[in-house]
Design a protein around this nucleic acid. Structure first.
Length: 564
RNA sequence: CGGGGAGUAGCUCAGCCCGGCUAGAGCGCUUGGUUUGGGACCAAGAAGUCGCAGGUUCGAAUCCUGUCUCCCCGACCA
């Protein structure tokens, strides 16, 4: 590809709307341009990389027996109403104004709809159907470039099986395929156990990339490989103590003491002697959640413990429920259900709120004073706590979700009546799995992991080109002729080449564009080396430079490109 | 949806607080010339309804009201 004839709008300055490295680089190197919040145009170079990613995905999906479909993005609303997901998605689903259509945010319904009446025998199963297609979600806050968009490309696949045992096999196939895909894309990733959330189903795992730009938080054990989304992660942490003697309850005047930190400072005590109170509303009834010290309530865990409808109480409800505002609430005299984190189990001599503003109570014995208390795991795991499997230190950090695999079960097949007949002529709902990869996120994550202060660092197989050929002074006919010849030869030898043939652009400009674009190998043709029938090769990743005689170039390139 | 920030030339931004002539800079772009191994130089030039609407005023980029859009933190998120 000739640079002079290509649309590669590189930018010297950091665009104002971009904050994270991958987003900045995508814009500066001319891979994308934003059209609106969460909506991006892929420019030629960006789309070239994206196609390479999609090709890898296709190969691996085909390798596990996947069949590629192309489902419509525009769907009749009626089908989505049958599974109740118009309501479940709510505002996230785009709806068409002048006809009863919706823009598909995923395709479980459509897959099930096509399976119905067409996949009718046990002989038709199993099936893996996939597509690479644009999805639409009306995200309230798109962010981080293409990482969370309102329109994005997803590889989604769906498995159709006879039994849950067969589903396990389809799930395993996807797990393996996903690992291969991300490995081939040269990503450093890991797999975590996750909450299935509203998708339902028995098991789900997320494929994650560590990044401060991520929207998920995960706990990870380097020693044994335990990894889990903090929504479900567990750890070993020091519990509150039970002393041999319980003190009597006593009230303490604590003016303006609201937080646990303030309480500890005021009374000169350790946070392990305190219990923090949080009030939630569960199916219209207040619930007091007691946590040890400064521990945070894990609302996903709370939700799965309580079931039903759970939300934090509003500040103006607290006075009526507890008789005090946040900061002075506690278990003593609280009239409703009380649940506590396991770390508080049977603790005594605790300090907590008095349900009276500006007062706390000391000497609390949960066994003696709070008879109906229930204990559950309700904590958010914190950095440095011990792994539940191997007792090593856990690390807690942010991550980007690249892919998610779900065992769905029969939720959709039952809702839409998608059944098959077994050997005995007996009808059963088809067992489904659903599996997704954010295609653009692969690119964004790759960039997050492969750049320096000069720009992108590509490596095969994602690199848009193998070689960046730079002709320095194109007005020098000797340079120009050599470049043209090299351009032809390199392509004939099977390399993908971007050739900076721009006539009036200065050397420095070309060098900087090449570094920004990040093609693995640069071949620099200049007057100095050409006098000795040589050119310079620069390795983008390391910055190493070699002067190579023209007749040894091809041999040297084969060697270098193997490693880059 | 809560909190914060921003909309002025293709890009990055100054000017706004404290209203005043024809609205500025750098980069980019066009033309001519000189240059060509790390974002060159000289000269000339094109380019902006100051997000939009309304108001205050002799006069609004600047003050007031409303509104739209974008970004960040949080909430939400299969």
């Amino acid at each position: 590809m000739r640079f002079s004839k290509s649309f590669i709008p590189t930018l010297k300055e950091t665009p104002a709307e971009a904050v994270i490295p991958s987003h900045i680089l995508m814009i500066r190197a001319g891979l994308v341009r934003q059209l609106s919040a969460g909506i991006y145009t892929w420019l030629p170079i960006g789309y070239k990389v994206l196609r390479k990613i999609m090709d890898i995905i296709r190969e691996e999906m085909n390798a596990i027996g996947g069949q590629e479909f192309h489902y419509p993005a525009l769907n009749p609303k009626e089908i989505w109403e049958q599974t109740g997901r118009v309501e479940a998605f709510g505002d996230i689903m785009f709806q068409v104004k002048n006809r009863d259509y919706v823009l598909a945010p995923t395709h479980e319904e459509i897959v099930a709809w096509h399976a119905k009446g067409n996949v009718t025998s046990y002989k038709d199963l199993p099936q893996i159907w996939y597509q690479i297609q644009t999805k639409f979600r009306n995200e309230p806050r798109p962010r981080s470039g293409v990482i969370r968009g309102r329109q994005f490309i997803m590889k989604d696949s769906y498995s159709l099986d006879r039994t849950f045992e067969d589903l396990d096999k389809s799930y395993e196939l996807h797990d393996k395929a996903y690992r291969k895909i991300f490995e081939r894309c040269k990503l450093k990733f890991f797999v975590v156990g996750a909450s299935s959330g509203a998708m339902g189903g028995s098991k789900s795992e997320e494929f994650m990339v560590r990044s401060d730009a991520g929207e998920d938080t995960v706990a990870y054990c380097e020693n044994c490989g335990y990894a889990a989304n903090v929504e479900v992660a567990q750890s070993i942490a020091e519990p509150a103590k039970r002393h041999t003697e319980s003190k009597q309850l006593y009230e303490i005047h604590t003016p303006n003491v609201k937080s646990i930190d303030e309480l500890c400072a005021f009374l000169n005590i350790d946070e392990h002697e305190t219990a923090k109170s949080r009030v939630y509303i569960h199916n219209n009834n207040p619930v007091l959640v007691l946590m040890l010290g400064n521990d945070e309530v894990n609302e996903t865990k709370l939700q799965s413990v309580l079931g039903g409808n759970v939300r934090p109480a509003h500040p103006d409800e607290l006075k009526e429920i507890a008789g005090a505002d946040a900061g002075s609430i506690g278990p003593i005299g609280f009239k409703y259900r009380i649940i506590a984190d396991n770390l508080l189990k049977d603790a005594n001599n605790l300090y907590s709120g008095a349900n009276k503003n500006d007062y706390h109570i000391g000497g609390i014995d949960l066994m003696r004073d709070v008879p109906n208390i229930e204990y559950y795991d309700l904590r958010v795991v914190e950095n440095g706590e011990k792994c539940i499997r191997c007792n090593s230190n856990l690390e807690v950090f942010r991550a980007i979700e690249l892919g998610h695999i779900f065992k769905l079960g029969t939720k959709y097949s039952e809702a839409l009546g998608v059944n098959y007949l077994d050997e005995n002529g007996k009808e059963h709902p088809i067992v489904m799995g659903s599996y997704g990869i954010g295609v653009e996120r692969i690119l964004a994550c790759y960039l997050e992991q492969n750049y320096d202060e000069k720009g992108i660092i590509w490596q095969k197989p994602l690199a848009p080109f193998d070689i960046h050929l730079i002709g320095l002074n194109m007005k020098n006919s000797e340079i120009k002729d050599t470049c043209e010849k090299l351009y032809d030869e390199l392509q004939k030898n099977g390399f993908e080449v971007i050739y900076d043939d721009r006539y009036e652009v200065s050397a420095g400009f070309k060098f900087n564009d090449a570094d920004l674009l990040g093609v693995p190998v640069q071949i620099i043709v200049g007057e100095k080396n050409l006098k000795n029938n040589s050119v310079e090769i620069k390795i983008r990743r390391t910055g190493e430079k070699f002067v190579v005689p023209l007749d040894e170039l091809n041999q040297k390139l084969q060697f270098i490109l193997k490693e880059n």
